[in-house]
Amino acid sequence: MRAALAFCLVMSVLAGSAGASERGPVTNLPLPRFVSLKANEGFARHGPGKTHRIDWVYKHRNQPLEITAEYGHWRRVRDQDGLGGWMHYSLLSGVRTVLISAEIADLRRQPATEADLVAQAEGGVVAKLGDCQPDWCRITAGGRKGWVLKTQLWGVTPDEIRN
């Protein structure tokens, strides 16, 4: 009976995780939302609990992940490839990072395509997320700061504005 109740609760969390204006039942924070991996290693499990099998092992500290559901101390996350599972909340951080999704991304001094080039970042580089305007975000990676087109990043929504 208790297992059936837990299953029903998890299924209701899963079923309701598609809406962008939804709030998490545990944290009351928006779902979906982006976070980063706090630990050097994190297990993504098939379900919310240590008894569930491990589907993925993330090994890159600060990797951006998207939370799509909550259940107790567990958060369902997915990565840039759409893969993931349930992770214990203690492995996640609210510090925002992004992944360079373009083959090469230009970091510019100002948020404009004609602005001076500061550096270039290869696809797969993880960067700390700063301010975001409608089309550009400021990032920090490898000791360099610059503005990158939002379309070249994974870990930020297209309409997200950050100050």
Rank of each mutant, 00 (worst) to 15 (best):
R2H: 13
L5T: 11
F7R: 14
C8T: 14
L9S: 12
V10F: 11
V13G: 03
L14I: 14
A15S: 08
G16W: 04
S17K: 09
S17R: 13
A20H: 15
E22F: 09
G24R: 00
G24E: 00
T27A: 01
T27L: 02
N28I: 02
L29Q: 14
P32Y: 01
R33A: 01
S36G: 06
S36Q: 06
K38G: 07
A39Y: 10
N40W: 09
E41G: 01
E41F: 05
G42W: 00
A44E: 06
R45P: 02
G47D: 09
P48Q: 01
G49H: 02
G49M: 03
K50D: 14
T51A: 13
T51L: 13
R53G: 11
R53W: 05
D55I: 12
D55H: 05
D55L: 15
W56M: 07
Y58I: 10
Y58N: 09
K59L: 13
R61A: 13
Q63R: 08
Q63C: 03
P64T: 04
P64N: 05
E66P: 04
T68D: 05
T68H: 05
T68L: 07
A69C: 04
Y71K: 01
G72V: 02
G72E: 12
H73I: 15
W74T: 01
W74G: 00
R75P: 00
V77D: 00
V77S: 00
D81N: 14
L83F: 12
G85L: 06
G85D: 06
G85E: 09
W86D: 04
W86H: 04
W86M: 04
M87R: 01
H88N: 14
S90E: 12
L91I: 11
L92E: 06
L92Q: 05
L92Y: 10
S93K: 07
S93D: 15
S93I: 09
S93M: 09
G94A: 14
V95H: 10
V95C: 06
V95S: 13
V98Q: 10
L99D: 06
L99C: 08
A102R: 05
E103P: 05
I104N: 10
I104H: 12
A105L: 07
A105P: 02
R108K: 14
R109H: 11
R109Q: 13
Q110N: 11
Q110T: 14
A112T: 07
T113P: 14
T113G: 07
E114P: 01
V118R: 11
A119R: 08
Q120R: 13
Q120N: 11
E122R: 14
E122V: 09
V126S: 02
K128I: 11
K128V: 15
K128E: 15
G130F: 03
D131E: 15
C132W: 03
P134C: 04
P134R: 12
P134Y: 03
D135I: 12
C137G: 04
C137D: 06
R138W: 10
T140R: 11
T140L: 08
T140F: 05
A141Y: 09
A141L: 10
A141H: 05
G142K: 09
G143T: 05
R144Y: 15
W147I: 02
W147Q: 02
L149P: 09
T151V: 15
T151E: 15
Q152V: 06
Q152I: 00
L153Q: 05
W154I: 00
G155S: 02
T157K: 07
D159R: 06
I161Q: 10
R162S: 03
R162M: 04
R162H: 07
N163C: 10
N163V: 14
